[in-house]
Amino acid sequence: MKIAVCIALLTAMAGTSLAAEIPLSERRSGYSFMSPDTRAMQDEDTANPGMLFVLDGEALWTRKAGGADKACADCHNDARISMKGVAAHYPAFEKALGRPVDLEGRINLCRTNHQQASPFAYESRELLALSAFVAQQSRGMPIAAGDDPELAPFVERGHALFMQRQGQLNLGCTNCHDDVWDKKLAGSAITQGQPTGYPLYRLEWQSLGSLQRRLRACITGIRAQAYDYGSPELVELELYLMSRARGMPIETPAVRP
């Protein structure tokens, strides 16, 4: 079913002109495409299952770990102050590595460099919980990632990946998320693919998931080989998506169907 629709879509798009970026005034979060019930779930903290992970993250924030026997709170104190606005600037350029890291990558750098602990696995409950807790401190703040001039070549690479057709269905992200975001695919709203809510609770996953997990799902959907978690390509895509969403408010932890 889904494949047939994809192919129909592909054929329909064969003649359309090359995508243009969505103007600022037309940018819409995935939230605005959701049913009233799903919106209500996101809107109320005691109904939003993502908040369960935020609570776990809050507990982990003060738990000592690693050879340094230090908790996040020992260095960063009150997250409500020290982490306010941080997630809105990620992925950020990491000098020591000479490339951007996303929020999950940044937290794992603190694990290894500052706590002398082993990094959390991608999509582990701990990493999702901590990144949700940190990102929630930016809820409502406008996205402002990609400003750093050192990031320019990486934003450009992310943009190129976004435009690139790939996979057996030979589709680029742009063909869905710029060209036909107001249409549906097998019953789901295609949406503009905005990264405003991550990590977010997806009802289909029955869990919180990272932006990388979402991107890997879209890449698998077009029948291409998904990049590995933590790969430079996924971080570049995240960076491009965040710079494309400039000015939109952070919603973490959002809910999506």
Binding site: N48, P49, M51, L52
Partner: peptide, 9 residues
């Protein structure tokens, strides 16, 4: 009354 419990089910 609204309740939400963390569980994998």
């Amino acid at each position: 009354i609204k309740t939400l419990m963390s569980h994998i089910m």
